[in-house]
Design a protein around this nucleic acid. Sequence first.
DNA 1: ATTATAATACCGACTGTTCGGTATGTTTTT
DNA 2: AAAAACATACCGAACAGTCGGTATTATAAT
Lengths: 198, 198
Amino acid sequence: MQKRAIETREHILQTAQLLFASEGYDATGVAEICQQAGVSKGAFYHHFPTKQAVFMALLNEWLAGLNAQMKTLLDQAGSIPQGLIDMARVSHEVFRSAKGQLPMFLEFWHESGHDPAVWKATIEPYRHYTDLFAGVIRQGIEEGALRAVDPQQAARVVVALALGLVLQGVMDPEGAAWDEVAQQGMRFLIDGLARRNE
Amino acid sequence: MQKRAIETREHILQTAQLLFASEGYDATGVAEICQQAGVSKGAFYHHFPTKQAVFMALLNEWLAGLNAQMKTLLDQAGSIPQGLIDMARVSHEVFRSAKGQLPMFLEFWHESGHDPAVWKATIEPYRHYTDLFAGVIRQGIEEGALRAVDPQQAARVVVALALGLVLQGVMDPEGAAWDEVAQQGMRFLIDGLARRNE
DNA sequence: ATTATAATACCGACTGTTCGGTATGTTTTT
DNA sequence: AAAAACATACCGAACAGTCGGTATTATAAT
């Protein structure tokens, strides 16, 4: 693929992301994407077989980024309870960096309800994260830092809290300082999970 | 309005709900609703001015039911921490009663992102719930059962957890026993909020 | 170095269909 | 008869995707 081609492809993806985020997937027409991107329809269909392919490309791109971010976070985590709280603290960073992309969340979730391919791509990494958290929590239990709860269940709770925060952040960005709420919430949860020193 | 007319209206609403939930709002055509409901297009547009009006009617119906359910729960709550846990326990009931309607959640959230009217109708009651929880938590603090946290923040955390659980319940119904996870999660959270008896 | 060849990248008018909504007419109820 | 409830045929706009063709760039031959 040539330089110009790559640039065209990027233009299409970037524009599509903006439009999907602001108008929604269904409401965004291919013609609209092409016009905003300064690209012809022929170019569009040269690079992508269908509109959905663009969507999937964006989804995978997004998930890959999230994955990387997550990995570095878990790697550099210290003690277990503190590590989890640290993760909540960096949620500040995550929220900030993902601000423009957050509305796409809703699009992904919405589409996943109707398209099995999108569903698989959405659900798999999030189960992955649950397992990942479960591992951390299990470790915390073995270290004696956390109470002997069911790690999978606890992990699901953590993920649920995170999802809920993101959802609120998407729907009502001005409603609160969601990164602070995230930190608070994670602290409450960790306190509830932590072993009592009594 | 006559009996037949009322029945027609109900047919339309019920059918629309099923289709919106399974296919999505955009993907569901008015013609499809009419056909499945055994009603003509004329009848449809006699009862509802637009497709969105049907959607709004469903949304309001849904919210009214949820509101009533919530109200009775809070009224019959005993001590504050136990009251919150009780509410989590009935989430079992909520999940069950809402089973078929859960996918509609996603539709509401998704639509609210693009339609200010839907947004207002969606966001207002949920802010209402947050305030409601905040009141309960404040009361719990005054009673000395809970630590002196910021009630609004804590309430947002509770609501976030609830939202996250619902979202997971929608996207991955078979992934776990979400009513149990809800109970667990609320217990962890309450434990984290509860005053330490040390 | 220049031309020929081929492959890639791109263009934009066009199509068949789908959809929300309307216009007009018919039946049922009061 | 009058009004409410319903039915059917239809409209215009918008849509994803197609297609025949044109630039542009890379590769090969002379």
